[in-house]
């Protein structure tokens, strides 16, 4: 009986083998076959992500990174922080209990590229913003084991001594606008001034930062030194905004027990 049931498949397989025996004499037949076979999956899974609106939640309050925060993000990328820290809280109870509301797609809407990560040698950072003081972040980056003796994180003391390069920031924001981040002309033109302003509280330039990025913007001397604009300022400014670009997750996910 099995033989009977399987025989159509065997015949099909036989036919395929014979067809293939002919096709594999032509390199172009193989080439086209490979491209077609490999194209289907990617097309079906990726193209709809750009067309289905529900893929990314609508959130008019979602704000863009300030140039200082973006500069910090670029340092985060440069140092390969993503190799050990994820920025994606999964929809699992223990992750929500440990790190906060699970991450929404809209939160990384302006992240070119995304930094969701794939490995947690250190903890998730998606909601680390505001969790520790600027001073803690700076001291931790300078010497992680001074604050967390068990830590295996590398020291980043050199960030404190490296002046932040700002001249390329207008170009960076313009490139980001070209790939879809809604920076205005004014934000791009004033990128350098706004960067300095964000790290100099009470300075004249800080007003411009508030004006262009909103009153909730963190304007502080992040590395504790008002007169120096360092890479440490940028990285800490970035860490302190993580998870705070929108309050949609907190609004839509009631805390446990409520």
């Amino acid at each position: 009986m099995w033989r009977k049931l399987l025989s159509p498949f065997a015949r099909m397989f036989e036919f395929q083998a014979r067809t293939h025996y002919r096709a594999e004499r032509h390199s172009m037949a193989l080439t086209i076959g490979i491209i077609l076979a490999a194209a289907v999956g990617g097309f079906v899974e990726i193209a709809p992500l750009f067309t289905i609106d529900e893929t990314v939640e609508a959130d008019p309050d979602m704000r863009v990174y300030t140039p200082l925060e973006q500069a910090g993000r670029d340092i985060y990328v440069r140092e390969g922080c993503y190799a050990c820290h994820s920025q994606m809280i999964r929809t699992l109870q223990d992750e929500v209990d440990r790190y906060g509301p699970y991450s929404l797609a809209v939160e990384s809407q302006y992240d070119h590229p995304m930094l969701w990560g794939s490995k947690r040698t250190g903890p998730d950072l998606a909601r680390v913003g505001g969790k520790y003081s600027d001073d803690w972040q700076v001291r931790h980056l300078v010497d992680p084991r001074a604050l967390v003796p068990e830590s295996v994180m590398p020291q980043y003391a050199f960030l404190l001594d490296t002046t932040l390069e700002t001249a390329s920031l207008p170009g960076r924001l313009a490139a980001l606008r070209a790939v879809g981040v809604p920076y205005t002309d004014a934000q791009i033109e004033n990128a350098v001034s706004d960067t300095i302003g964000q790290a100099q509280p009470d300075g004249e330039r800080a007003d411009g930062t508030f004006e262009r990025y909103g009153d909730d913007t963190n304007v502080r001397a992040f590395d504790g030194r008002r007169d120096l604009l360092t890479e440490m300022d940028a990285l800490v400014a970035y860490l302190q905004i993580l998870g705070d670009l929108t309050d949609l997750p907190a609004r839509t996910q009631p805390a446990r027990g409520e």
Partner: peptide, 19 residues
């Protein structure tokens, strides 16, 4: 970001970029 520099930004962002 500039043809005179190494830095570039991915054409994709967030969830599409991850996929």
């Amino acid at each position: 970001a500039s043809f005179a520099g190494a830095k570039s930004y991915s054409a994709f962002s967030g969830v599409q970029d991850a996929m």
